[in-house]
């Protein structure tokens, strides 16, 4: 625990990392604000609005993974990123499958 052990690596720079966190806060706040503003003002038709808030949410999730969870495309992060992508695949299969089954069950019962 000796500060002199810090190598001259550029990424280990407190000011830079504080800015990184601040960018996470600002980008998330802007994206959230935009999504709420769209829903309150409703300037477009409903399908367009739904696509917009879904896109804003996805971008914000990406921002938080990058700025707060430090997941990126660097080689040393590949395993973590692959795990995120594999989990996303499992989620898409399970969620899409469940929705399909539930909606056709509903259609047959109705």
């Amino acid at each position: 625990m000796n500060p002199r052990n810090i190598p001259p690596a550029t990424r280990d720079d407190p000011a830079r990392e504080r800015r990184h966190s601040l960018l996470g806060l600002v980008s998330s706040a802007l994206l959230t604000g935009a999504a709420f503003a769209l829903v309150l003002a409703q300037p477009f038709a409903r399908p367009v609005l739904l696509a917009c808030i879904a896109a804003l949410a996805l971008v914000q999730i990406g921002c938080q993974l990058f700025f707060f969870l430090h997941i990126d495309l660097r080689r040393s992060h590949r395993d973590d990123l692959q795990l995120v992508l594999f989990t996303s695949l499992v989620i898409v299969l399970m969620v899409a499958g469940s929705m399909w089954i539930l909606s056709s069950q509903h259609a047959m019962m109705g």
Binding site: M1, N5, I6, P7, H70, R74, S76
Partner: peptide
């Protein structure tokens, strides 16, 4: 490799190897 990020979240390699 030493000095690289090893896990998600903030890495403390420089601070405390």
């Amino acid at each position: 490799a030493s000095g690289t990020d090893r896990h998600p979240g903030l890495n403390i390699h420089g601070r405390d190897p």
